[in-house]
Design a protein around this nucleic acid. Sequence first.
DNA 1: TAAAAAATTTAGACTAGGCTAAATTTTTTT
DNA 2: AAAAAAATTTAGCCTAGTCTAAATTTTTTA
Lengths: 220, 220
Amino acid sequence: MQNSFTEENYLKIIHALSGRDGGEVSTNALAESTATRAASVTDMLRKLAEKGLINYKKYQGVTLTEQGEKVAIKVIRKHRLWEVFLVEKLGFGWDEVHDIAEELEHIPSEVLVEKLDTFLGHPKFDPHGDPIPDAKGNLTEPDYKVLTDVQIGEKVRMMGVLDHAPSFLQHLDRSGIKLGSIIQVKEINEYDKSASVQIDGGESLFISLEVSKNLLVQRR
Amino acid sequence: MQNSFTEENYLKIIHALSGRDGGEVSTNALAESTATRAASVTDMLRKLAEKGLINYKKYQGVTLTEQGEKVAIKVIRKHRLWEVFLVEKLGFGWDEVHDIAEELEHIPSEVLVEKLDTFLGHPKFDPHGDPIPDAKGNLTEPDYKVLTDVQIGEKVRMMGVLDHAPSFLQHLDRSGIKLGSIIQVKEINEYDKSASVQIDGGESLFISLEVSKNLLVQRR
DNA sequence: TAAAAAATTTAGACTAGGCTAAATTTTTTT
DNA sequence: AAAAAAATTTAGCCTAGTCTAAATTTTTTA
Ligand SMILES: [Mn+2]
Ligand SMILES: [Mn+2]
Ligand SMILES: [Mn+2]
Ligand SMILES: [Mn+2]
């Protein structure tokens, strides 16, 4: 049978929280991410386990089954493809598309997704630098590093963000930092770990530790 | 407050059933169109009346209030714009898009609709020839006539369909009849009212009364 | 114009998802 | 190794939307 919006959201969130290692996700973590109460999460977990989408033993946390993983990845694929559409075709800013994609990701129809993918030219990454799973369900997370791990003097390329909040993305816009930007770390302040960086060889600017922690970059 | 998917569907269906004259719609008609039972319709009508979206007095049938009409027209606008997108941009056939648009029409976000409209070049009609309401909520139904009302010898242009069923649309595809086709009525059989017509000056074909009744055309 | 038929509403119940408060289990501290 | 704290589950309840069966109102028919 079909999965509901709510079930799909749970699966997607379990996928995100269990990380690349596929570790157990706690009831409380899910309650936080779904903005519901722990008791409600427990109910849903029973149902998802019933449907064979998660492995769940009371008090032990949950992981996705193979089947649950497949569903989660399909939702993620749709979410990211729609984000590309919204930015590339409709002209939305990267800070505006998350909530809309959160709805569009639940529109059923395999053929719709594949036609959309073709229309967009089979993009590999979404507007935030996140990888788009392919039609077969393969999702490979590139191993970028965080800007805080970059040495002084090093030049790296901006590849993505950890924080997807509109306020953070807008802050990057105002700082002139975007996907593909070349960032050279000039100096790091001992006191607050803020950094002085140069973007695309332009003028220097200061960025806080909070910002550095949320920038994914790649050595070139 | 926001209206639910279900509420939006009811409003849209009430709009369709009350026709250009805005007449009362019966509980049973709604039950049929929503594929629910009359008792369920009654419950929903109480709720919609409560929200000021319909005029409802027990046993009297319903009409849309001005506010309800506005909501219905917004949903119709979204439905038809998404259908244009699916056909023009993604390459779906006109027989394949209705169910998908039935879901997409409920995605909220005014700005999404307006950007989509711009992206599509402000289309005036959807793939079935139905008029698309403008951003202000103006919806003007062109007054086409049905092919059964066309005299022998007359040449008309195919402008739309009354039946939107995939099977009917596919039948038209196989017959080579599409929006914009020039149809000349050659002969009408007394017995079953089937007609012999010529499409775009090509070879003649027979169409049944059932087909003629569902073709909207315009004198040229 | 009264009886029969049809349409509609009311009553009572169910499922999905959610909540609060209380009970239970696990984990952390002493 | 208890006791205390934190996490999780259970119990009981709520709303939206749906259903069936019964009651009521309107419409049709005789
Ligand atoms: Mn979602
Ligand atoms: Mn994204
Ligand atoms: Mn719909
Ligand atoms: Mn249409």
